[in-house]
Design a protein around this nucleic acid. Structure first.
Lengths: 194, 194
DNA sequence: ATACTCATGTAACGAGTTACATGATTTA
DNA sequence: TAAATCATGTAACTCGTTACATGAGTAT
């Protein structure tokens, strides 16, 4: 069974407990979105496809006059998640415009390189702060914390996100300073070209 | 002027010197692909669009009987690159299946979490190694090194890639060990749930 | 001869985003 | 009563990949 990116995140979210499409979207937005996003435009059609394929099962459970469809994994679906989980080939895609700008800074405007690096660092600092806030809410207890299972592996992912982004912020700060020292010590515009 | 992702990388590559579509693709594959990829299916049509828009200019420069079209920035194109360079809103997109698996490990197969973390770490170690190899070739001089300008900012991006991936590999190794210690110390399956 | 690299391009497909449309319930 | 949230869904669009097609030159 081939699963799309959105399919895997849906199946994973349903592995914990039955949820609606809306639930899944909220959950993704407060957890995986930093390394695996999903939009309504993908989630709802994918839920239908997965139901047709027999991996999940829909149950109507309206709240008052407000319609609501909750999905849960079938035996087939559980098998599919496990198989996905055990498959080795892994997607790793990155699109980082800050790095691209820095990469081209030398031929566009070398003087602005420190600024570009600092901007990239600030972005990571901001992500780290947002993740830290999520962590604090989890630690404060279930009351206002996110609805997803705060188990060890998912907490590890959160820690990873915080620490990696903090590391990046620090690295960028140091690199920007080195850059400025380097250009201050030499005549303007002189880099070390081969 | 709105520029697509592929357009920015093309313009950036042409900012250094005129190049063919083929050149750009080779260059991308040995440099930006780790944080900004581009395929022929995007590059060639985009070159035509950019030429039509007057940002670049095509010149036929066949090598023997082998046709070849070289593009260079026009004044308008140079202006567009600068404007892009100075624009603040930045794309940052990540899709990391290894992290997604770790995130769901708790509800799918907690026992395999250390394995999943190590796998993720090994992937980063591999990227670090590949980038390190590129760095060695640049340092060995221009003879067999990549054709792109080995200037300060692009070298900084390369260093960033190496050091970040090494940091990730180490973090994962430590996290996997902590995980094993933790589960060994407690009765099987007991995580610290709220 | 054969395979590889240089070189350009297109068609089909897949995946995902944004904007829009609709409507109920709850809170300020 | 207005705004926010819950809840589902579609259509248009953008972006990008893969596979395919073509053909010349170069190295084995």
């Amino acid at each position: 069974m081939e699963l799309s990116g959105t399919a895997t995140v849906i199946l994973g979210m349903l592995a914990a407990r039955p949820r609606s499409g809306y639930d899944i979207k909220q959950l993704v937005d407060s957890s995986t979105r930093f390394f695996w996003a999903a939009s309504y435009g993908q989630i709802y059609p994918e839920l239908k496809r997965l139901a047709e394929a027999g991996l999940i099962e829909a149950t109507d459970s309206p709240q008052g006059g407000r319609r609501r469809t909750v999905y849960e994994l079938t035996a087939k679906g559980r098998k599919a998640v496990r198989e996905w989980f055990e498959r080795p080939p892994e997607i790793y895609e990155l699109r980082d415009e800050g790095l691209l700008k820095l990469f081209f800074a030398g031929v566009i405007d070398p003087g602005r390189a420190p600024e570009v690096i600092r901007h990239r660092g600030a972005h990571s600092a901001e992500i780290a702060e947002r993740l830290h806030e999520i962590e604090r809410r989890i630690e404060a207890g279930t009351k206002d914390g996110p609805a997803y299972a705060a188990d060890m592996p998912s907490r590890t992912v959160l820690r990873f996100g915080i620490e990696m982004n903090e590391w990046i912020a620090q690295w960028c700060e140091r690199a920007a300073n080195d850059f400025e020292d380097d250009t201050a010590a030499k005549p303007a515009g002189a880099g070390r070209r081969g």
